[in-house]
Design a protein around this nucleic acid. Sequence first.
DNA 1: TTACGCTATATAGAGAAATATATAACGATT
DNA 2: AATCGTTATATATTTCTCTATATAGCGTAA
Lengths: 114, 114
Amino acid sequence: MDKPEFKINGRIWIETPDGKVLGPGRVELLERIKASGSIRQAALQMKMSYKQAWDFINHMNENLGSPVVISQRGGKGGGNAVVTENGLKAIEQFHVLQSKFREFLKAEDNEFTL
Amino acid sequence: MDKPEFKINGRIWIETPDGKVLGPGRVELLERIKASGSIRQAALQMKMSYKQAWDFINHMNENLGSPVVISQRGGKGGGNAVVTENGLKAIEQFHVLQSKFREFLKAEDNEFTL
DNA sequence: TTACGCTATATAGAGAAATATATAACGATT
DNA sequence: AATCGTTATATATTTCTCTATATAGCGTAA
């Protein structure tokens, strides 16, 4: 049969009254900062401009209760960035949500047929 | 405490190997075409350019198995557009999905706290 | 004290995406 | 035949977003 294959897909994020504050991209950014200790390197890895990465982090730091990344300039290596405890919790909790969402999508995947 | 209020939000859509083919906006467009009998009027109501509306419809017609909108030019009123049986099914099924998704979001809404 | 590489910030520029505009085609109605 | 409002299509323009670029600030280490 030439029935087209429809796939249900989607995206979830966390928002405050000020708008989106955390989503898959920002979480990946946090994880890469955690791994590399550098905003710049994380941005490069994701082929994202440093400015965008910095804007994301700044926005998260200001809207996620307490900072998720603490950065310093100067010193060994020129500076560094570390993910805070709060940031680690954000990563963890978003992963849980994302996992449940994937289950939802999987469960509904055969529910759309024309 | 000044714990910020986090809201989980998201978006779902239907896609084929060629990309997104149906989402909340396109469904609303179909509904307005159904109600008005006009692509132009539906686009105006949604403050969307006619071209964008037409492109959406064209893409849906070509990727949703069979056409969802049939349009004619000339004649009484200058022309008209009607939503097909297939289009009605698409609207209906997407609403079902969307409803389940809202339930999912609601259920998970307290699951993100920092 | 100089060099290094990163953070921090502003501004300019490129690219993409949406909109606006223009034009042709069409058929019932008058 | 002339009119009308819409569909259909192409092109130009605008708007927006992202990227690129430039510059300053910083502290450790050589």
